[in-house]
Simulated scan of single mutants.
Amino acid sequence: MIPIRFLLALLFCLAAAGASAHPHVWVTARSEIVYGDDGQITAVRHAWTFDEMFSSFATQGLDANGDGKLTREELAPLAEVNVTSLAEFKFFTFGKFGDKRVVFDKPVDYWLESGPQGLLTLHFTLPVKENAPAKGEPFRVEVYDPTYFVAFEFAKDNPARTVSAPDGCGVDLERPKAPDATQSKKLSESFFSGLSPGANFGAQFSNTLLVTCR
């Protein structure tokens, strides 16, 4: 099974000739901030829906029984590879409070589903491993690809919510500004290949979940 990053690279190569600017894959996201009985965050739960081109490419040959439908079982190997490969990129999920970072553990409860128009949605839960904010303490969760190979846009309806949160706690979404025309022209392959390792260019396109309690 091919790692997701290699799949993404192949997808770009198969795209129309002359397509030279980042990003190359688009994801529509929904997220949940999950709390425990002690009032502290315990996990972030994601549902990421991939664009049509990537969904079509990634699922080629996976319909084992040839019935024209992709079951969770048929997609399980791809889901496994996806979450394993994304560990290198911290699952594009960065938790922060004050000057500290929330550390997430390996994902659990992950699976892929094929929805309307064959679009793939990856579901997974990131448990908090270390540095959970204290009950009632504000924090933020940023979702972005540092390399800007993958572009995240949160859903227009119900993009984020809390689960089992203490009374008075809620989450707001701060969406990034889209690159203007001048900036978009600069986002070529040569531009990104010239960036230093760890440049974190994609941070400026972060979707930020702001969690506060009254």
Rank of each mutant, 00 (worst) to 15 (best):
M1R: 11
M1L: 12
R5Y: 13
L11E: 11
F12I: 11
C13H: 12
A15C: 09
A17V: 09
G18R: 06
S20L: 10
A21E: 12
A21T: 14
A21G: 11
H22M: 05
V25C: 11
V27G: 01
T28Y: 00
T28D: 12
A29N: 09
A29L: 10
I33A: 00
G36H: 04
D37A: 14
D37P: 08
G39N: 03
V44L: 01
R45F: 06
T49A: 08
T49K: 12
E52Q: 12
M53S: 10
F54M: 06
F54S: 02
F57G: 07
A58P: 09
A58V: 10
T59R: 07
Q60D: 09
L62G: 05
A64W: 05
A64L: 12
G68Y: 04
L70D: 06
T71N: 04
T71G: 10
R72C: 09
E73K: 14
E73F: 08
P77T: 04
A79M: 05
E80D: 15
N82T: 13
V83T: 04
S85Q: 10
S85F: 09
K90Q: 15
F92N: 10
K96Y: 03
F97A: 07
D99T: 14
D99Y: 01
D99H: 04
V102S: 01
V108N: 06
W111C: 13
W111V: 13
G115K: 14
P116E: 15
P116L: 13
Q117R: 15
L119E: 14
T121F: 00
T125I: 09
N131R: 05
N131H: 14
N131K: 13
A132Y: 00
P133Y: 00
P133C: 02
P133F: 00
A134H: 09
G136T: 01
F139I: 01
V141L: 00
D145G: 03
P146I: 10
Y148G: 06
Y148P: 03
F149T: 14
V150D: 03
V150K: 05
K156G: 08
D157G: 04
P159E: 01
T162P: 00
V163Q: 02
V163P: 00
S164F: 09
S164Y: 07
A165S: 01
P176D: 04
A178F: 02
A181V: 15
Q183V: 13
K185M: 15
K186P: 02
S190F: 12
F192E: 00
G194N: 15
A199D: 07
A199H: 05
A199P: 01
N200Y: 04
N200S: 14
G202H: 02
G202K: 00
F205K: 09
N207K: 05
N207E: 08
L209Y: 07
